[in-house]
Design a protein around this nucleic acid. Sequence first.
RNA 1: GGUCCCUUCGUCUAUCGGUUAGGACGCCAGAUUUUCAAUCUGGAAAGACGGGUUCGAUUCCCGUAGGGACUGCCA
Length: 443
Amino acid sequence: MTVCRFAPSPTGHLHVGNLRTALLNFLIARRAGGTFILRLDDTDRERSSETYADAIRTDLEWLGLAWDREERQSARLERYHGAKDELIRSGRLYECFETPAELELKRKMQRRRGQPPVYDRTGLHLPQSEKAALRAERAGHWRFLLDRERVDWTDRILGEVSVDAASVSDPILIRGDGQFLYTLASVCDDIDFHVTDVVRGSDHVTNTATQVQIFRSLSCGAPDFAHHSLLTGPDGEALGKRIGAMSLRDLRDAGIEPMALLSHLARLGTSAPVQLRASLDELAQDLDLSRFGAAPAKFDARDARALTSRYLSSLPVAEVMPDLVSAGVPVGDAQPFWEAIRENLDVRADIGFWWRLCTDGADSRIEPADRDYVAAACSLLPPQPWDGGTWQSWTARVGQATGRKGRSLYLPLRMALTGRSRGPDMSRLMPFMKGAVRYRQAE
RNA sequence: GGUCCCUUCGUCUAUCGGUUAGGACGCCAGAUUUUCAAUCUGGAAAGACGGGUUCGAUUCCCGUAGGGACUGCCA
């Protein structure tokens, strides 16, 4: 039984990088008919908030990434205590008493001497009497005693990975204030929830080595790991540096369609071409982790926008009926109006734009050179209401009267009627144009 | 400073030592629809740099440069 999890900490809004992680986990679970767990890593009570937890759920729901089970670490403290006791009993957890300032100083000096800033295990060798004395003045924190050996695993994206645990400090698992840290909590959760596949960003590669040792010391096997490269912005900058940029919330507000975004992220950084898919199931069918590269990939929202436009044009009228109705389109007009505009939308909200343009009328744009031409054409324009044949009969007459043809015949008329050089097929749009056209001279 | 990863068209990437270095998205042009879009056809567009191995290197090795991750009482 495949079990995957997406484990954000509710300390901020999700961004596209987070989404890629969530999506991969979701798709793996979906394809295998397994379980997808949403796990809120909220052991840090100060930074975590319910507001962000809600925002995360909202984002996932918007995208259709339904989770089968929700867990939160703040509710599992007892379990972590149990793990702590077990590790102490087996001698893998030891208490330390350095202050953060002392540790920083230590690292600084090691660095200055050209040594790697690895913890020197002072706490491990402290005599009991000294520990008791220290304990009286401050709360100790707990470190996991690493085996100083290489940890190897076959990563489903990176291939054979080998990390030397000797190059890493014994990780702190429990803070002085008793807070359990990610490194331990995550392992306990993966054990208890029987997680089989861990897909996460490659910033966790080193963690994996230490966590594999923790799995072992708790007498459990580690799950399969896959570490994907990190996403950057269009200029290669790290995501999340610019606050709010690339957040899912922003993309949603900008009108990006879920399936467009999902289709893009499922293939970005892979050797397979991006293909617009209609459903998560289709994406799940196509998913191939081995096609992901190890190099960081750039995410450009413009790609998601282009896909959004293509996605919208593929939709049947039933899918957009609520949008048409709320834009004020009468149900009887919905089908033909949708057919008229569907291929000319950037975002869903453009439905309202075109309908308002039809009902409220447009500000025309007339190039100075076309002023006489447009005036002549307008004198030939039949009064509203127009129908599906109006555009053709009108432009034919205008063409005869003025001798114009092709682009120079049509474009000024399109701009006079809609104020834009691009837009829906005019013969399909004209029947809906009931508002007055406000003619004015272009600058 | 240390460890690890990465570097091919604008972007994502293919290439198991010999290829006119391929595809997709984007872009440009033409065709078509006497409009917009769509579609079709075509086009421009790449091996970071320096060594080495080899008959032959984008491919293997070393180095340099650049980018990223980790090096937290964050996750």
